[in-house]
Design a protein around this nucleic acid. Structure first.
Lengths: 212, 212
DNA sequence: CGGCATCCGTGACGATACTG
DNA sequence: CAGTATCGTCACGGATGCCG
């Protein structure tokens, strides 16, 4: 665990960076925004992080009240890490960072790892900006995830894999379309009209998108 | 200069952290949001940063298109560092970080450095949230700064010292009031009503605040 | 004197190996 | 599966020196 290296500045941004400014910390938060995750799954979706650094960051986050460690009820009893309310409040920070970094996503380098759910936060932002709400399942070539649009506050804002219950809409699209929508270059209704997004489902959101 | 240590993830937030995730970088941006600054002034307002790290970060930021180095016209010819448009677009990131970190500002530790203009971004956010606009000069015990509220885009959003031209409003307040307003605990009109903010000036904003 | 570059000690990081 | 142990490397922080 870190001996708490601080900037020692009476400034709210510096205080924030004291807690989440270390390497990997905000990316761990990005992963945990998808809900409770096991150590091994975190390690798998954070390519490049070493095991000791991951363990150290998770301890720091526990100590600082950003995350908790909990034992899942059997069967399948395992430890999972989960964000606290304070940790979930970092969502706007990650969205601001993601919005700023989106223009650099242009070319995908051969060394770049990809996970489908890394597109969840930008897409969530785009959907919220269009005033949508509901449970949305998204399928990319790289995998599947689901979004809880407009349900701020309580639980995880998105999750890996298919939606746990019947979603209000299902979207099938490619990563290029996904990044374009996430960047605001292309609105979701425009993408649907251009045939770049397949929409299914019977919820209000699905119908609205198809009619657009 | 850094050999560009990257997360190598095809994720916009990770890309952003590739550019601004290094220690001190976002705090340098915070300083440069106040307008062009000399190396020595940056060093003075970033207590704790070592000279080589500051020089290295500034070179990285130049290389990455976040800042430029420019020679001021004589007299007083000196080099100043200035944010590019891309660099200024980091304002929402710093504001999100500041908003998140504000609750930790409660107690001021004896080791904490303070600069008046570190309150500029939070206060700017609060004023914008209330729909204000104009040039506002702020005086704290620790010093003076000025805000260009609602003038997004072109130049510096705030600056150290008094306003360069007659401001639309002048505010005199204490740091406790300033943090309370910045956190949204207290609205600016409420703070004025409570006698915790002295308002002077003849602009629309000043009049509106006094009438509140 | 402002604007760095150099040197050095310490600590953080990344990779691999290993253990309960 | 969930980390801990070890180790080489690199980044950071502090001091000092140099150069216009």
């Amino acid at each position: 665990m870190s001996p708490r290296r601080s900037y020692d500045q009476y400034c709210s941004a510096a205080r924030a960076l004291d807690l989440v400014g270390d390497r990997w910390t905000l990316l761990i938060v990005r992963e945990l925004l998808a809900g409770p995750r096991r150590y091994t799954d975190l390690h798998a979706d954070l390519p490049g992080v070493s095991t000791d650094v991951l363990a150290s960051r998770l301890k720091d986050m526990e100590r600082d009240g950003l995350a908790t460690r909990r034992r899942l009820p059997p069967p399948g009893a395992a430890y999972v890490y989960e964000l606290t309310g304070r940790g979930r409040e970092l969502l706007p920070v990650l969205q601001a960072l993601g919005a700023w970094g989106a223009p650099d996503l242009g070319e995908r380098r051969p060394t770049d790892a990809v996970r489908a759910h890394w597109f969840a936060l930008p897409l969530l932002r785009a959907l919220e900006g269009e005033g949508s709400a509901g449970l949305v399942e998204v399928r990319l070539d790289e995998g599947e995830f689901h979004l809880r649009v407009g349900e701020a506050g309580e639980g995880a804002v998105y999750g890996e894999g298919p939606a746990p219950v019947e979603p209000d809409a299902r979207l099938v699209l490619g990563v290029e379309t996904c990044t374009a929508v996430a960047q605001g270059e292309l609105s979701l209704p425009d993408a649907v009209r251009a045939g770049r997004v397949e929409v299914s489902g019977e919820g209000t959101l699905a119908k609205a998108l198809r009619e657009a």
